[in-house]
Write a protein that binds this DNA or RNA. Structure first.
Lengths: 204, 204
DNA sequence: CACTGTGAATTCCTTCACAGCG
DNA sequence: CGCTGTGAAGGAATTCACAGTG
């Protein structure tokens, strides 16, 4: 295949494919066609074929995609074939829920540290981690952590992000309801559950 | 303005605009230009003008958008000018975090009921709600609830959704890591935090 | 004069249709 | 034969550029 720019939308869908192929593996399926997979995921078969083809020819003509090797390929593309450590900032209810959410582990993520600014939380244990003082956030520099998850109020987010930017953080999953200003070298994904819910009444 | 189809992407951004205008109101700003707003939200000025213009001419030429009335307009468009009741299914850690998340209230949402299937949770209180037995989900029919938030494991989601479909639910915010099959009359927004985080290592 | 509102141009993404292959 | 892989076509969303206006 000739070089083409890979659409951002394709990248966003890759983790979904990875999850699907992982699940197929646990079901002991050997292969799956684009139309069968499309059915499961609620999308169109050509979309799946085009998405996967951006990264190479993984399928077998006349058969479909081999489950195990395609899963491995996608894991490699997304760099999820090695454990990715992440720091969680915010040990409130949402932070605690995230810290113990098994979904991250299934993608190879490891919540390797938790920080908060609340003295009553610092020192307490959440899952396997002890909550640390946000003032000491720069200790993550030496801990091979390049991802951050922000579960703190919007008005506290920007200063924390400025701190993270000085600590080799390269990607941020932002659960605060605000836009973050970051250097171009940092990729941010922002999710506000209330905003997502906010579109639904319009369609009713 | 002539009729045009309003892009889905525009609808997705409207709650963000509403949040921004609400915040500007608390800051006692009278008006804001598209470029100032773009700066705050990390987007382009023409994008904002085009989005808002799909719904009418809210701005004042030479000045910008009047904060209070534009906020009201957007609230009306999104049908967030009346309280929208929602049922939360799943009273685990994530469900509990959602039940007490103040962001929903600020958009006019009211978590009016919580259901779970775990006997040890049924009867306990989370915020102002008492957790009810999922077997009695059909009681929501008579309670003017048309939105649902799903915070349950993926393998339990589909049967619950089938039940909700029989209960006048018209919109679902799905936090389970799976695709949901629903009738066309129901709008689903699915968010899987692990999937969102899954794209970040690719960009590092 | 500084801004909005908006057709037109552009870019980006999806779908189509079919050639190519196991 | 049934599927993938992929250029080409079509459609959707964004950006541009400027006319219109308080």
């Amino acid at each position: 295949m000739n070089y083409q720019k890979i659409p951002d939308e394709t990248i966003k869908r890759m983790p979904m494919y990875l999850r699907a192929f992982s699940m197929l593996k646990t079901e002991n399926r050997d292969s799956i066609s684009s139309s069968q997979l499309a059915e499961r995921l609620g999308m169109s078969p050509p979309q799946i074929r085009k998405d996967l083809s951006y990264f190479g020819a993984f399928g077998t003509r006349g058969v479909g995609y081999p489950v195990a090797s395609t899963a491995d390929q996608i894991r490699g593309i997304l760099k999820l074939d090695v454990t990715q450590k992440a720091v969680l900032v915010g040990a409130g209810r949402l932070g605690a829920a995230i810290a113990e959410y098994p979904g991250f582990a299934s993608f190879g993520f490891d919540i390797a540290a938790i920080f908060d600014n609340d003295p009553s939380k610092i020192g307490t244990k959440i899952g396997k981690n002890v909550v640390e003082d946000i003032a000491k956030i720069d200790t993550i520099k030496s801990r091979d952590i390049h991802l951050a998850i922000l579960a703190i109020p919007a008005d506290a987010a920007q200063p924390v992000v400025d701190g993270l930017a000085d600590c080799c953080i390269k990607g941020i999953l932002n659960l605060s309801a605000c836009h973050l200003a970051v250097p171009k070298s940092i990729k941010v994904v922002t999710i506000d559950l209330a905003m997502e819910l906010g579109t639904l009444p319009y369609y009713m």
